[in-house]
């Protein structure tokens, strides 16, 4: 598989190579990189400030103007440029998405590793806790959190991470359960390796591919959730995210009059998340060859 080299970085680079081997995966990768570029160069790419009010030649506020050359995606009720807002929206989506995915993997993988390797009462305890988290309704919990603690990006990330690790932990644990029975674990033990060494040196590299697939799915799910939070009006009001754009149009009750205000941010979410799914699926098919076309 990806064993030409051992380091975590090389495994990652190899997986990128593998993903780009499939057409959909390559397409996803290209779109994702473009989105990253848009997020990084938003100030250069966006013709206007996202919260800037635009006036026409006569000095009148450009309220709900349909797409034009000046404003390729039209303007909002407050005369703001939708195109610029969508460009700037890539930033919160990716920042929140990537940090959440990172946090989820960090917690989920470690809990899965420890639970699966040590077994016994540790496993029992951790899995019962995971089961309890399985019963927490995701979005409602985040809304309650945000309404109590204030609506910053950090809280959004935090709230998502403490719920989302649960499925990753389960997936990783079941992998570890089979890995720890493999003879190489015994071989490491009689080399004098401690429990932690066995977990992180012997077992962890073998679950890395599954963890990477989970990164992709956690990322996709985090972006959608962040948009949902924005749509319900619980995002940081100072940050123009894609969900918030849709929220503003929905709350102003103009969304059904000005399609250009609603369609582009939603489409942006769809394109980015689709790209992430394609990357994840392509990689999953590579590490599980039975999924490939027969």
């Amino acid at each position: 598989m990806f064993t030409n080299d051992g380091g975590m970085v090389t495994v990652f680079l190899n997986s990128l190579k593998m993903v780009s081997g499939s057409k959909l995966g390559l397409a996803g990768l290209v779109v994702f990189i473009v989105c990253l570029g848009v997020a990084v160069f938003a100030p250069v790419l966006a013709p206007y400030q996202p919260l800037e009010k635009n006036y026409d030649a006569a000095g009148k506020l450009m309220k709900l103007h349909p797409p034009s050359v000046q404003h390729p995606l039209g303007t909002t009720l407050l005369g703001r440029d939708v195109f610029s807002q969508v460009i700037w929206g890539a930033r919160p989506a990716l920042i929140i998405g990537l940090s959440t995915a990172a946090g989820v993997i960090l917690i989920g993988v470690n809990i899965g590793l420890i639970s699966g390797y040590y077994g016994g009462w540790i496993d029992n305890l951790l899995m019962r806790i995971t089961d309890i988290f399985m019963g927490v309704p995701f979005l409602p919990f985040i809304i309650v959190m945000l309404s109590l603690t204030g609506r910053s990006m950090v809280t959004v990330i935090f709230a998502m991470v403490i719920i989302m690790w649960r499925s990753t932990a389960r997936v990783i644990r079941s992998q570890v359960l089979t890995l720890r029975e493999r003879p190489f674990v015994d071989a490491a033990r009689i080399s004098g390796a401690s429990g932690l060494k066995i977990i992180y040196v012997e077992i962890a590299p073998n679950i890395l591919p599954i963890a990477l697939v989970n990164v992709a799915f956690a990322l996709a799910w985090a972006i959608i959730t962040e948009a949902s939070i924005g749509f319900l009006g619980f995002s940081d009001p100072d940050v123009m995210s894609w969900g918030t754009i849709i929220y503003r149009s929905f709350a102003s009750q103009m969304s059904y009059k000005a399609w250009w205000w609603v369609v582009p941010p939603g489409a942006a979410i769809m394109v980015l998340v689709t790209a992430v799914y394609f990357i994840g699926r392509a990689y999953e098919e590579m590490i599980n060859p039975r999924l490939q076309k027969i």
């Binding site: 064993t3 051992g6 493999r182 003879p183 190489f184 015994d186 071989a187 490491a188 009689i190 080399s191 004098g192 390796a193 060494k197 040196v201 012997e202 590299p205 073998n206 890395l208």
Partner: peptide
């Protein structure tokens, strides 16, 4: 100890150098 299964008893993620050096390092 030498194990029965030469496929299962070697971690596929480690190269020969790292397999041989680990006992020494431990």
């Amino acid at each position: 100890m030498i194990f029965q299964d030469p496929y299962g008893s070697i971690n596929p993620q480690h190269n020969v150098a790292s397999i041989l050096s680990r006992p020494l390092m431990y």
